[in-house]
């Protein structure tokens, strides 16, 4: 059976890991390659690198980092953050990234999803969607959640699926950072209405939250950052607990 995936997410700035990575046994917690290898050894199923570099130089450095990760890490990884062109995606894939994640640029120019799917295949196109509830309606937000739009989450998700997205990474801004659990009602609706995998993001605080998002939220994968970086939830322990709760995981 296809297993549920556990995906640590790393923020990268100018080729270095930023914010809160606190692994005791790492020589250099700022080195994304070192960290990625560690996660791969701990049983992470995939990795996501989110590039938050503000400058072109920073982005160039990220490309180099992608190359080093691809050289040394033997599990798949996705790169996201500030990607808006076919050329940029081409460069990332040439450096060895397995998938790319696009967000605001897809909303601004939805044809980008088609272009990427046609040129590189749906399997490497992840569309990330940030959304929060406004008067009970899930509305898509742009630019890291800072700009609200009138676009409905479910309509948008269906549109990008039609345009060739291979996967949806849904972050609930209502849940992100709360450590109170994932947005399972919305996730289950996405999973039922779409026929591509859904990655849950935002809200992971304890093991039960992962169990819930796989069972109630019908998520195909769960992404988290701080609970993994600070060792609050060691991945081997998480997987053992998931298995004990009859959730199929690679373990």
């Amino acid at each position: 059976m296809l297993t549920k995936r556990i995906i640590p997410c790393l923020d990268i700035k100018d080729g270095r890991t930023v914010k809160g990575v606190n692994f005791v046994d790492l020589r250099d917690a700022g080195d994304p390659v070192e960290l990625a290898k560690q996660y791969a050894n701990y049983g992470a199923d995939e990795l996501v690198f989110l590039d938050i570099s503000a400058t072109l130089e920073g982005r160039a450095t990220t490309l180099e980092m992608v190359m080093h990760v691809a050289e040394q890490v033997n599990i798949p990884f996705t790169v996201g953050g500030g990607i808006s062109s076919v050329e940029h995606v081409d460069a990332l894939l040439q450096c060895g990234a397995d998938k790319v994640s696009i967000n605001s640029s897809a909303v601004k120019r939805p044809e980008l999803v088609n272009e990427l799917a046609n040129k590189f295949g749906s399997q490497c196109v992840v569309v990330a969607i940030d959304a929060k509830q406004i008067n009970g309606q899930w509305k898509v937000h742009l630019a890291g959640g800072s700009i609200p739009t009138d676009i409905d989450l479910f309509e948008w998700a269906k549109e990008v699926e039609q345009r060739g997205a291979g996967e949806i990474l849904f972050t609930s801004m209502d849940h992100d950072g709360t450590k109170n659990g994932f947005a399972n009602v919305a996730l289950a609706k996405l999973s039922e209405e779409l026929n591509i995998p859904i990655i849950a993001s935002g809200g992971a605080g304890n093991v039960q939250h992962f169990i819930d998002t796989f069972k109630e939220g019908k998520s195909d994968a769960a992404l988290a950052a701080s609970v993994f970086h600070f060792g609050e939830i060691p991945i081997p322990y998480l997987k053992k607990e998931l298995k004990a709760n009859h959730i199929e995981v690679r373990f």
Partner: peptide, 27 residues
């Protein structure tokens, strides 16, 4: 099923030298 199949699944009924030292139902 969801398409594409994306992620880790097991391979079984292994019969080839290609799978030497690879266990049944490896991910």
């Amino acid at each position: 099923v969801k398409v594409p199949q994306m992620g880790w699944n097991v391979i079984k009924n292994l019969k080839s030298k290609l799978f030497r030292d690879v266990k049944e139902k490896e991910y």
